[in-house]
Structure formats: C-alpha cells, structure tokens
Nucleic acid binder design. Structure first.
Lengths: 249, 249
DNA sequence: CCGAATCGTTGACCTGCATCAAGTCCGAAG
DNA sequence: CTTCGGACTTGATGCAGGTCAACGATTCGG
C-alpha cells in the first residue's frame, strides 16, 4: 500500500517525478520535462507513517504539500474538542491552498504514505515562473471550492442518511477517478472520522451503515472496505438523482 | 446605496475602473493602467435590481462576475426545496470561481447593484496574459476556501447560538474591511436567508437574535441593521476567542 | 498466539432544534 | 393615512439525532 514511498524518496532528479504514480492526478501533471525538473529541485520528498502530523492548526504556514501516496485527514477544532474534518486527501491532492500566515487546519496521516513538500516562499516563486502550474492550481482551487459548497449543503441541510449516502457516492467517484470501477470502496478512516466529516456521531454513522447493509444497498467486505450493491438506490438516498440544478453528464 | 451604478455603466474606457469604489477590494486592485484597460474592454458593465437572478444552478457556466455595488446571495437547492446559502457577496467579491461547465449554484441580488460581467472564455484568455491577475485570483480562491472551511466547522459542529454569533462577527469583520469600524452592521438579507446560510430555521434565528438583544449583546436599530454592544461577549458566544489553533493577530 | 486497547455496534433515553400555529410588525402601494 | 401581504416573533409540541451505557469485534505489540 505504501510501496513506492522509498522509490520516490530515494531516486534523483526528474526520475522521481517520472515514476510518480500520483502525477496523473496532480497539478504537476500539466508540466513538461523542464518544469518537472524545476519543481523537483524545490521539492522535499518526504514520507510519513500512519498517525503522523503533517500540519498543526495555528502553526506558521511555512510549507505546502502534494500527496503522492497514502491518505491524509484535514480537520479543524473548537476549544472544547469538537472536531470538524474538512477533507480527506488522497494521492494527487494538494495540501495548503487555503492558508494564510498560519495554518487554519491540522493535517494528519490516516495511512503511511509520502508527499512532495515545498517551502511556501519557493513555491510562490515557482508559480511566478510557471503560469501553467499556476493555472492548474487555480483549477484545483475551483474544484475544491465547489466540493466545499457541496459539503456545506450536506452539513447544513441533509439528513444523516443522506449525508452517509453522499459520502459513499463521493468515495465511489474518487475511486473511479483513481482508476477503479467505483463499486469497491476503501475506507481508510474510522467511523469517528467519518462522523466528524459528516457532522454526526459515530453511533449515527454506525446505525445508518447498518441500515444500508440490511437493505442490501451496500455489503461490508471488512471493517475498512465495502462494495456498493445498488448504486442507483444509493444515489437516490444521497438526494443526488434529482437535485434542483442537476444536468446530465 | 446604489448610487454609482449609473456612473459605472455610463462611463468609458478605464474611467469606469478608475472611479470604481470596489476596485480597492477586488482582484482588479492589483492591476496597472494597461491591465485595467484590457480588463475593462472585456467587461460588460451591468446593473441589476433587487431579486434579479444573475446565475441559475445547472445553466451552462458562460460568465463570471465581479460585484461592484450591492449584495448578492449564492445558494444551492435540493430537489425538495431545501436550500443552503453558501455565501453572501458584497462589492469586490468575485462570482463564478467554483464553476465547471455548469453553474453549481444560483446567484440572486439581495439589493440593487452592479457588476462587471465577463465571458468565461475571454477571462481565461486575459488570465493567460496577466499573471498578476491570476495570482490575485488564486489568493482570492485561497481565502474563499478558508472561509468555506470555517463555514463547514460552523455547520457541522456549532450550536445555533454559536452560529448566529459567528455570523455577526463575520459581518463585523467585513464591515471593518469595507472601511467601517465594525460596530454597526447592515443585514441586507432576511431572517430566512440567514437561516439558510447557517443551516437553521427562521424561528431559531429569531429566537437567538432575541436572546442576544435581551442579554444586551446587540441592539436592533431597525429590521436590517444592528449594533454590537458587547463585542467580546459576542466573540465568546461565537466560540472564537479560544479556538484550538488560535493565534494572536 | 494472547491480551489489552481501541474500534464498532446496538439499545435506552434525552434534548436542541424543527415543526406547527398564532399573532404582531413593517414597508410599500394606493 | 390606510391597507395589505410578507417578514418577523413567540409559544406549544414533536422528533432526528445526540448522549450514555453496555457489549462484541478487531488490531497490534509482545
């Protein structure tokens, strides 16, 4: 699962990027040889283990990350410990876009993995020199903003079941984008993390998962993977099959 | 309140931008004479009246907007009519960042006002030619993403009173940024719109507003304006004075 | 392979906010 | 000034999901 961590960290020059399985999914996918070399020179190819903290809310925002292997959780806390997970990152995702002088979120690895880490100042300079990269990053930011709006709709207006169903549909889409067929879903996160992402409690997540299982909509393969048995049913439960402004893809 | 709508729509060339009160707050604030002229040529200076629809969810995303005067509401709908307002825009704000081929949201004017409207294809071309503008837009996107994360925390984990207090604090910040001192707040939106922004109902918004009034934290000046009597109290109620990763400004 | 710690499930009960239902207030049109 | 309709407030009641509690399942270090 974390096989090419070492391959990435150990290799040299563009070779690292050339062999990077996340490039296809990442902003650096738009770059040519020359640009990749330039970016690669500025990158610190780091690896991390499960549970490792990449970014701590409130710390000076000095670095940006491009996840190449593994999964990462991004969250915010209230003083009494209430937690909201604002995103799960997987290979190709960019970490640090929404950042001022201090990080406004914490980021912690769900699994072992690796990332390209950049000094923010360096990255800013690189962006100046490579408009294509900046353009790709703006595209990425637009996508994230759209996803954030969807999540606001989910958190503000959807029921517990709709939230869970939407979440599973999103994971299915992501799996498809990463190359799978979207039927088998990996859940690298715990129930508590799903709950904190959906604005619910573990108990509510668990109960609704059971309901989906009982109704035959999903099948649990293990604690951290499941298969979608009736995609259309799930879509319906997510309230996605007839959203107001829905248009055919 | 909408005084310079005509001034903007009627003038010519860079003069329009030169006299634009929103420039200071907008992405075009980074541009020089030459760039402004270029942008101005591509802009359709439009005005709108209260209630007018600027963008409809699901429609082909052909245009981008820069609000120059007035306030705008951006929202998403579920098929059964449940609504989530994802943002209120005021002068200087950009509309259309989070957009793919179709608009994923609707935008409707709260008040009369005006905007610079661009064809998306034109704007993309302009961005290619003007890296400064693209850079400014990326900054703006980062800010919006950060705000979206804050709103996710609010919607997912805050109580009704915390949501309302946070909302008022945000309006206060915005008023300060626009030049005021942040004590007097204008509420161009209805209680129902506040509710749909905070993931609540009108009744809950009303009850909590009354509570704030009774406790002397705020004072209602009219239906659509109030003053913050005890900012520190409000900050406390918003759960902002001691958020986990909080750092001094 | 074992045991402890953590994670997940299920049940019983409770509560914050939604819902339902009257009113009251306010602003725009005559 | 009056009148009308929508916006707002307030109260009574209900319920989705939170909380508390008990108990299985899984994982992992040794």
């Amino acid at each position: 699962m974390t096989a090419n961590t070492m391959a990435c960290a150990g290799a040299e020059s563009v070779e690292v990027c050339a062999g990077c399985s996340a490039r296809r999914l990442s902003v650096c996918g738009v770059l040519e040889q020359e640009g990749l070399r330039r970016l690669n020179d500025a990158a610190d190819h780091m690896s991390f283990s499960a549970g490792e903290v990449l970014v701590r809310e409130g710390d000076p925002a000095t670095h940006l990350f491009n996840i190449t292997v593994g999964d990462v959780r991004v969250h915010k806390l209230l003083s009494d410990g209430r937690r909201q997970i604002v995103g799960f990152l997987s290979p190709g995702d960019f970490l640090g876009l929404a950042t001022g002088d201090q990080y406004a979120f914490s980021a912690e690895a769900l699994t072992a993995g690796s990332a390209c880490r950049f000094r923010k100042t360096d990255y800013r300079k690189i962006l100046r020199e490579m408009p294509d990269l900046e353009h790709a990053l703006l595209d990425r930011a637009a996508h994230e903003l759209k996803a954030a709006h969807d999540q606001m709709l989910l958190l503000g207006r959807k029921t517990a079941m709709e939230r869970l169903a939407s979440f599973l549909m999103n994971l299915s889409d992501r799996a498809r984008r990463a190359g799978g067929e979207g039927r088998l879903i990996e859940l690298p996160m715990t129930r508590a993390e799903i709950a904190d992402y959906l604005g619910l409690t573990t108990e509510t997540v668990s109960r609704n998962t059971t309901r989906l299982k009982t109704r035959g909509v999903i099948r649990l393969l293990s604690m951290h993977s499941l298969s979608i048995e009736r995609p259309s049913e799930l879509l319906h439960l997510a309230g996605l099959d007839a959203e107001a402004g829905d248009a055919p893809v």
